[in-house]
Computed example of a mutant assay.
Amino acid sequence: MTDRSLAALGLDGVPAKEPLTYPGRPTTEPSLLTGAELLTLGVRPRRLGEWPVVDQDQDQDPGQSLDDVLGELGQAPTGRRHPVISVGSNASPGQVSHKLTRLGIPAAVPMVPVRVRGIGVGCSGHISPAGYVAGTPYVDEGAETVLVVTWLDSTQLKAVDDTEFPDYRRAILPGDAFRMTMPSGERLSGAYIYFSAHGVLAGPDGTPRPGGGDQAELLGDLLAASARLRELLGPDPRTWVARAGADRSLREEGTAVFGREGWVLPQTDFLPYLDDSAELRLYDDLPPLGDSLRS
C-alpha cells in the first residue's frame, strides 16, 4: 500500500516549530489532507466535490468522490466550506495539520493549487510570534501566481482566524476582479484571503520585497541592511528567530525598526474587500458548468 503520510511525502514540517523553514513545503497537487495523510485528488471537469480521491494502488479505480469521503469522515462537504487563498505557511499541509489538530479540530481539508491573477506575494511588515517574517499578499494587476486554496469548514476557519488575528485581516476577493482558475479550468466566484495589518516590506528599490523564499536568506538581508536590527536580533538568522520567538518585546521592537528604516509600504488595496464575518459559498453565482470551463 502506498504510504501517503505527510512524513513519507516530506510534507510534515511545521514552520511554527522550525521558523527558518518558513513557509514550509506546499502541496503541489490537488489533495485532501486528513490529519497526518495527504490523499491525491483526480482533476475532473466537474465541481470540486465530485473529483475522485485517487487510490494509488488501484489504477483502474477512480475512487470515491471527495464529498463522499468527507461524508464518511463525518466532515462537511465542499459546498459548505470556505475557499481560502494561502500565501504563506497555510499552503503547507504540515502547518495546517498542526494548527488544527493541536486544538482538537479534525484536519480534513481539501487543498488545491489555483492560478490567481492580480495577487503578488510579499513579506509582512512585522515579526511573527514564531520569530520569522511571514508572507502577505499585495495587489499586483500584472501578476499571475499559483497559490494553494484550502477549503475550510466554519470551525476550521474560526481556528485559522484565531492564528492570524490581529496581525492579519481577512478579505473576500471577488472572482471578477481577481481571476481564480482551478486545475479543471473552472473559475471560482471568490475566495477569502488574509493580508497583513502591518503593511508590506519594501525592497531596496522601493517595491514590495518578494516573499515565499528562503527565510534565512531574507533575515540575513534584513540584518545586513540595518545596524539596529543587528544589535537587537543579530548576528545571524538563527539568533534572530531564537530571540524573537522567545521575547514579545523584541518582536515588537524589531517590527518598529522596520518602520523607522522606512521599509513598510501600507496595505490599502484590500480594504474595499474587507469582511471578517461573511459566509462565502463555494461556487456562488457561477455560470453553468460548461460555460465556466476554460481551455
Rank of each mutant, 00 (worst) to 15 (best):
R170C: 06
G125T: 02
V133L: 07
L157I: 04
S249R: 14
P204N: 04
L232Q: 00
S184T: 07
P210D: 09
R209T: 00
T21D: 12
V149R: 10
D140K: 13
L219P: 03
D68S: 13
L286C: 07
A16M: 10
P129E: 11
P210G: 08
R4V: 09
L38W: 06
G10R: 11
E252C: 06
A216L: 12
F178P: 01
Y22Q: 07
P93E: 08
G120F: 00
L173R: 09
A36G: 03
L33H: 10
L271D: 09
L73E: 10
F258A: 00
L233D: 03
P166E: 03
P83T: 09
D12S: 14
G63E: 04
R209Y: 06
R187K: 15
G254D: 02
S277H: 15
P110A: 03
P210R: 12
K17Y: 09
P83L: 11
T34H: 11
V87E: 05
A177E: 08
V116F: 07
A8D: 01
A256H: 03
H198V: 04
R209L: 12
G88Q: 06
D167Y: 12
G211K: 04
A202H: 00
L229K: 08
T40E: 15
A36R: 15
S128N: 13
E29D: 13
P174L: 06
R4K: 08
R230V: 04
P129T: 12
A177R: 15
P287T: 10
I172W: 05
A191G: 07
R46K: 14
D221G: 03
D59W: 12
D214A: 01
L280Q: 01
G211M: 02
F178G: 01
D67E: 09
S86N: 11
D214H: 10
L9T: 04
A91D: 02
A7P: 00
P210M: 12
R47C: 06
V139C: 08
V109D: 06
E37R: 15
G175T: 08
I172T: 04
G35A: 08
A191I: 14
P15T: 04
V14D: 07
S184V: 08
L152I: 10
D12C: 06
S128W: 10
H126I: 02
R238G: 09
S124Y: 00
